[in-house]
Nucleic acid binder design. Structure first.
Length: 269
DNA sequence: GCGACAG
DNA sequence: ATCTTGTCGC
């Protein structure tokens, strides 16, 4: 799949002002409502999926094609390796990779300009057309409502959601308890740090996909938010349905594993 | 100046 | 993201 909006492709050589300006434009065209044809309830994982060998069944089925995206960094720290794993009906139907030089350092709020290029390159190597992208990082939970998931989703104009392990900004509607029960979710609202929308707007959720039955230790929730063409509520629903027994939703977990398997497999270090 | 920050 | 073995808990 290729970019539909080339003018929005993240360019690492832009100045900080230009990057932030581009993000405002992206947030302006992003759709934070359900605007897709597939049935979100058809995306479900009750058990873990086996990553298997590289080539897999490239046969097309019926259900929505969901693609997980994640990055790893080559040991020189100057190159990002992006991995995409496409799933349909609980099976891996395709996977793709790309390695690109890292042009800028990690800057909170500007992550897409560091990793976006590698992700778009990996997506261009995909042979199937995903109905939904599950990106590692924030979507609407972002200072200008244009996090990595939103940026990527808008550029290729495909429904996308963001899954982060930490909260970038925003305020929980109620304090996140030390221990959230599996299935629980708490809205994340925009606050003064989110400069593109009214405070109080629900921009995502803290979602508990898994929790230990008992004990002193507990698993932290995930922070999920709409990327593009998906509402905050549906985003939380989908992430909850994608938990195959692990904290991370299956698309993300598989892309995660595929990325560092490919990394240590020896992508020219 | 202080605080705060995805991967 | 990444550096990294053992270890605490069920």
């Amino acid at each position: 799949m290729e970019p539909v909006c080339p003018e929005f492709v993240p360019d690492p050589s832009l100045s900080r002002e230009e990057m932030e300006s581009l993000q405002r434009e992206i947030a302006d065209v992003a759709v934070f409502e359900d605007a897709f044809a597939f049935d979100p309830a058809a995306i479900e994982f009750d058990s873990p999926v086996d990553l298997g060998d590289d080539d897999q069944h490239r046969l097309t089925g019926d259900g929505p094609i969901v693609a997980g995206v994640d990055q790893a960094f080559l040991d020189d720290g100057d190159r990002a390796l992006s991995a995409v794993v496409a799933l349909q009906d609980g099976r891996i139907v395709d996977r793709a990779y790309a390695v690109l030089d890292t042009e800028i350092p990690y800057i909170p709020g500007l992550l897409s300009f560091r990793e976006g290029g590698a992700i778009l390159a990996a997506l261009s190597n995909l042979t199937v057309e995903p109905d939904l992208l599950v990106v590692d990082g924030s979507g609407r939970i972002h200072f200008r409502e244009a996090g990595l998931a939103t940026h990527i989703g808008v550029v290729v104009d495909v429904p996308a959601i963001g899954v982060a392990k930490n909260l970038l900004c925003g305020t929980p509607a109620e304090p996140i308890p030390d221990r959230m029960e599996a299935g629980a979710r708490i809205p994340i609202e925009a606050d003064d740090s989110v400069e593109t929308t009214e405070s109080g707007t629900v921009i995502g959720h803290a979602v508990q996909t898994r929790q230990y039955d008992s004990g002193s230790t507990s698993i932290n929730p995930l922070y999920v938010s709409p990327g593009h063409r998906v509402s905050a509520e549906t985003t939380a629903d989908i992430v909850a349905q994608c938990a195959g027994g692990y904290k991370l939703p299956e698309p993300t977990r598989l892309a995660d594993r595929a990325a560092d398997r490919q990394k240590r497999a020896g992508s020219p270090d």
